[in-house]
Simulated assay, not measured.
Amino acid sequence: MIPFVNIQAQREAYREELEKAEKAVLESGIYIGGPEIAGLEAELSAYTGTNAVTCASGTDALTIALTALGVQPGDEVVVPDFTFIAPAECVARLGATPVFADIDPRTLQISPESVESLVGPLTRGIIAVNLFGQCAPYTELRKIAQHHGLWILEDSAQAFGATQCGKQACTFGDMAITSFYPSKPLGCYGDGGAIFTANKELAQKARMLANHGSEERYLHKVVGTNSRLDALQAAVLRVKLAHLDAELESRRKIAKRYNAFFADIEGLTPQQIAEGNTSTYAQYTLLVDNRKDFVAALDQAGIPHCIHYPMPLHRQPCFAEATSQHTGAQENAADMASQKAVSLPMCAFTQIEDIIGKLQKVL
């Protein structure tokens, strides 16, 4: 059976390193905080050239970053319409309103033109999602943000290790986040996340918010939360981080193999990687004119697949009130993508020739 993400093969490849790291944590008795967390944060900071603060999940990272940026009830934040719910969900949980921007139909990234059209007197910032592993159009977004006095929060949950014009992901926003969910390009064995910023004051605030609003034991300057990455997960991530660049190169080679195969098949269009971008290929995603028949062919061949994402956010029932008050509810490129997108197996250990062989029999 072909796995969608072959985490087992990855563990086998690094088993000796992982077991040594895991054993060291278990025998240390230090399971929360300690040298593994400090070491991972230092390595993440060095990799990105920013200040890294770990936390319990990518969703927590979003909420903490939004809080650090000062989001208040009644504010509006522009978010992409075609993505996972977490960015809009975190905005709404803070009492603010997500305003849904359309996407570029080729790259599937947030559309700067749509963002510009949605900025109003209550807009405080923009969440740009590095969807499926490549960076959003930050040059254009930064111009909009500067013109209107907005901040940018970079959601790089799928794109840690990607680059744009030679710069690392997690460096383009006033703050940025990533997720260490197991299936991510850099994943642990549970939930985990991190916040990044070049601003030391924002980093300090994020760290305080993640620790019950406290910098000093039992002295709480603000109301915070409890959001900690544990030491065992940090140890796993440190092993995997050392192999990340090599894995990303493997992912890109696998994506090229997919691209070459699908180039001769009508009605199948891979997500376009924008000029200047490299992608982590968190997913390998196609836009398929006849998705129903294509999915049936994948099922016949025994190839796993996933629909990322079957509904744009402005059509989700939980956002009905927000959508009714803002433009973006009309059919748009996000609707198109939700009707056509299909993601295929992708990781550094994906058995690509096996998959191509099976595809050749059914397409």
Rank of each mutant, 00 (worst) to 15 (best):
R207G: 14
H220M: 06
F319P: 07
K292Q: 13
A169N: 06
T285S: 10
Y189H: 04
A65M: 06
Q164G: 03
P121E: 15
P137N: 07
A157D: 12
R291M: 04
E89F: 14
L94P: 01
S183L: 05
L286Y: 05
H305N: 13
A21N: 11
Q233T: 00
G166M: 12
K253P: 00
A337T: 14
Q330T: 13
A255C: 09
Q325E: 11
A52K: 03
L44Q: 07
A162H: 12
F196K: 11
A333R: 08
P112K: 13
F294E: 07
S179I: 11
C55L: 10
E113K: 13
A9N: 09
M175F: 03
T83N: 04
H305L: 09
K23W: 03
P112L: 10
V288D: 10
A334Y: 02
E215G: 15
F261G: 05
S179Y: 03
A260W: 00
R315T: 10
S57W: 14
K221F: 11
A96L: 06
T59L: 01
T197K: 09
P182Q: 06
I152W: 01
A320N: 05
F261R: 12
K256A: 13
V342K: 00
F160Y: 14
D60N: 15
E43M: 13
G166E: 08
E154Q: 13
P312Y: 08
F160S: 02
D245R: 12
V362D: 07
A198V: 03
L244R: 00
Q300Y: 02
A68D: 12
L219R: 15
T59Y: 12
L363N: 04
Q330M: 05
P312Q: 07
I265Y: 12
A206C: 15
L118F: 04
Q204S: 14
Q316C: 09
T327D: 14
K143H: 11
L40P: 03
C318F: 06
L229A: 06
V362Y: 01
I177F: 08
A65D: 06
D354L: 15
Y284R: 08
G39S: 10
K184M: 15
N130M: 01
G49S: 11
Q10E: 15
E215W: 05
S111H: 04
L244W: 04
V239K: 04
E116V: 06
S338D: 02
N6G: 06
T97R: 14
A194Y: 13
E201F: 02
T269F: 08
K361M: 13
K221G: 09
